[in-house]
Design a binder for these strands. Sequence first.
RNA 1: GGCCCUAUCGUCUAGCGGCUAGGACACAGGAUUCUCAUUCCUGUAACCGGGGUUCGAUUCCCCGUAGGGUCACCA
Length: 489
Amino acid sequence: MDHNQQTLVVTRFAPSPTGFLHIGGVRTALFAYLHAKRHNGTFILRIEDTDKEREVAGSIEHIQASLAWLGLEYEYGPDTPGPWGSVIQSERLATYQRYAKLLYDKGLAYPDPYTQEEVEVFRAAASAEKRPFLFRDHRPATFGVWDGSQPLRLKVPEVKRYTWHDAVRGELTAGPEALDDVILIKADGYPTYNFAHIIDDHEMGVTHIMRADEFIASTPKFLSIYDALGLTPPVFVSMPPVLRDDRTKKLGKRDGAKDILDYRTDGFLPEAMVNFLALTGWNPGTEQEFFSKQELINVFDITKIQRAGAVINEEKLLWLNKQHLAGLSDEDYLAYITDGDCVHPLLSTEHRAALEVLVPTIRERTHVRSEFLTALGAGEYDFAVAAPQYDTALLLWKKDPDVAAAQPRLEQVKNLLAPHNDWNSEALKALLMPYAESVGKGEVLWPLRVALSGRQNSPDPFTIMATIGKEATLERLSAACAKIQGDAS
RNA sequence: GGCCCUAUCGUCUAGCGGCUAGGACACAGGAUUCUCAUUCCUGUAACCGGGGUUCGAUUCCCCGUAGGGUCACCA
């Protein structure tokens, strides 16, 4: 195929600025992004701010920050207008008015002659008779003059059954009851979503619309607007819902859905997040689970998007994060683990050397930074910054007759360590293991480790010694021996 | 209520008429290990129900059931 004749793909993510982005919305953005990038296409961030009431200040910046964190770069956005002008709908009012006028002039749109109260009466009457309310049943015989003070409604061009194709769901169909004379322009001069998104997608050359499946029900209405405008609709790509844990509802902000940026605070890597999101509601058809963003771009295929709703599997997200964390250098991992506003002493520059020694240990025990911070708070790493407090009984190895038995062994370890200066865990292990094996590993290593950590469960003693240094090691061993002595007397 | 959509292990999913129904997370057991963790091995666990079509249905059709969505001057 001629390179110049490649199929052009343009997708967009079009949130309204009503607060933060949650995992469901971000997934829609990701799929739109991946599909565009897969085809060397264009990805647009459009802001649908046609409802002034619901707008939340700072939302646009927050949305941009969220996409930036995940690395979902867009060619056109709030700071980078396209040839068609702004991507912020409130800055495009003239465009919508122009199209509205076009429909009005052709008799395909008319001003709503009723007050909102009157429409409510119609609605209530329909409801009382247990039949669906349709505005078009009340369409005036002759259309008035539209002066902008009344909402402008579409005159449904043809009341019929619509059948259309959805890239995910296949053939979809809905009868005339799904069609109505929807409002195109509100009384405040702003367009409705129904109208504005169609015009924008057309003007911006959008080829594929990724959006939540809740829009399937209103697609016939959209189709009737496309018809009225004489436009060919783009490809519809309906995203399966992300459900709440209990599956009783679509995940929403009211149900405790987290701000996507909270995952960043917790320490999830953007690549892990992207990897995880891609795998909920989509799969490559192979058994590969670990993907970089680029790998996803290479294999993403909208025909493999899932139809059924999915529940977020947080355990798998944790697992994936650990897999992605494995790609960091020790240096980067250290920066990662200390990033944030936690104030534990081990994270201060004073203990940087100790923390560096502990990095491999922390890596193996941690899925995400917040997990490490919790362990820190629980005192699991206190051995690194202070001499431990512990009950002497803890020194008792399960096969030992009593605590006193450990003392001579700890003394011997001290003697072996005293002249030794190569203070890294491998060298220390090589130094002490022959002795430990001659006596019994548990008999030596258990009390040694407890003397150093003050804990039943901890990293191995050699790592601890390497972390705290020679001086502290010898001090803690002496203290343990003194403790045993004290108990005996 | 009308209309629309969906349905494989606990969760994410593979499957596109014939498979011992595969993988991942989680879980359980074992090996390694002084403990915890890691790592490795093994295992438990699923086709919503009923009718068809077919030589043969997880797969195709219909009817149930369950769940979701939608019926705004919100998107």
